[in-house]
């Protein structure tokens, strides 16, 4: 089953769109399937059902045991590969 990744930022409009598209492209290139869902950071606690990983550009508060990657690499272009490796390590088992 495809893993579920929540991608969040302040508005679910600007930065998270960039992050989501970049992750999607990267995963496609590597042939890895995942469900990517975009939301506001404030909504994250109410959308945790079945989520395997959270990637965010802004703090997300209490999410229990779900791993969180807070990163700006997809925006600045610096450190994208390292973050992609991290993301893949979480969703591949």
């Amino acid at each position: 089953m495809a893993k579920k990744i929540l991608v969040s930022c302040g508005t679910a409009v600007a930065t998270s769109t960039v992050v989501l598209r970049k992750i999607e492209e990267n995963l496609q290139e590597k042939g890895i399937k995942a469900d990517l869902i975009q939301c506001k950071a404030a909504e994250v606690p109410s959308k945790l059902d079945g989520v395997d990983l959270i990637v965010t550009t802004t703090p997300v508060g209490d999410v229990g045991d779900i791993p969180v990657i807070q990163t700006l690499s997809f925006l600045t272009g610096i450190g994208v590969d390292a973050d992609m490796e991290k993301i893949i390590s979480y969703i591949k088992e």
Binding site: C9, G10, A14, T15, S16, T58, P59, L72, L75, T76
Partner: peptide, 19 residues
């Protein structure tokens, strides 16, 4: 400094609570 959108900081609990 890399100039970015304030979307990256509005997740701060104070920002959300004030909002």
């Amino acid at each position: 400094y890399i100039g970015l959108d304030s979307a990256i900081i509005v997740g701060h609990p104070t920002a959300i609570a004030t909002g």
